[in-house]
């Protein structure tokens, strides 16, 4: 546990020292929010959640790529792969919570007649999914530019695809549309249940993908034997 917490603490420090990245990270969801605030309040809530997801996924993508240089030597220094990826996930989840709280407060005071608890749930699930999603991308697509383009594509599709279509369920933030509909349009609990299940399954699946990718990349090679 000490090893995971040490990695988490230092990964958090690293992210917090990237000042310009932090500013962009913080302002991006705000831009999403105000883009639809005038004409469609409900849509602005959906957009701000997507903005948080996009910002955090991007931060995770870059954090994962930056760690590729130092992780092999940390592995040699006694860390197991799960210490490294779980530590980084904890740091990113912490950043995500810190990013979400002011936006939740904004919605709480700026929007009325919505289900605030459900909105808090969307934000929690968005943070839970976005961090492993970005790390998984950094593992599968090692170059940052390609990873960023994939992220751009995913978020773009998330905005334009019909959420009722089966294919849209494959997108990582589909749950936010479902729970958003429940929170904003006061629909029945089916939307909430489907969204919740989707968010939990995606979080577990993406975290497992990160674990497998990290385990393969940082495995002890068969030619090397410690006696």
């Amino acid at each position: 546990m000490t090893k995971i917490l040490t990695v988490a603490e230092l990964a958090l420090r690293e992210i917090l020292r990237r000042r310009s990245v932090l500013v962009i990270l913080t302002l991006l969801p705000l831009a999403f929010y105000f883009s639809r605030r005038e004409d469609h309040l409900g849509q602005s809530i959906r957009f701000v959640c997507l903005g948080i997801g996009w910002a955090l996924s991007t931060a995770a993508l870059f954090a994962g790529s930056a760690a590729r240089g130092i992780e092999p030597r940390l592995r040699l220094s006694g860390y197991r792969p799960h210490h490294l990826h779980l530590g980084r996930l904890v740091a990113l989840w912490t950043v995500g919570v810190g990013l979400s709280v002011p936006y939740f407060a904004l919605i709480r005071f700026d929007q009325h007649d919505v289900r605030y608890g459900a909105i808090a749930l969307i934000m929690m699930l968005t943070v839970a999914v976005a961090a492993p999603f970005g790390l998984a991308l950094s593992a599968v697509v090692p170059r940052e530019l390609e990873g960023t383009l994939v992220l751009l594509t995913v978020v773009g599709l998330q905005m334009i695809m019909d959420p009722a279509g089966a294919a849209s369920r494959l997108l990582p933030f589909w749950f936010s549309r479902e729970i958003g509909t429940y929170a904003i349009d006061h629909t029945d609990g089916g939307y909430l249940t489907r969204g919740l299940m989707h968010g939990i399954v995606l979080t577990l699946a993406l975290t497992a993908l990160v674990a497998v990718a990290s385990g393969i990349r940082l495995r002890q090679r068969s030619h090397l034997k410690f006696m």
Binding site: L10, E14, H223
Partner: peptide, 27 residues
């Protein structure tokens, strides 16, 4: 250091290992 695999051969280390790369390796 076990960072890449050879096509053939074995490395046996008796004890612990420290590795200093030519560049990078820091945060």
């Amino acid at each position: 250091a076990g960072l890449i695999s050879p096509d053939r051969g074995q490395v046996r280390v008796h004890g612990s290992l420290g590795y200093c790369p030519q560049s990078g390796g820091t945060n």
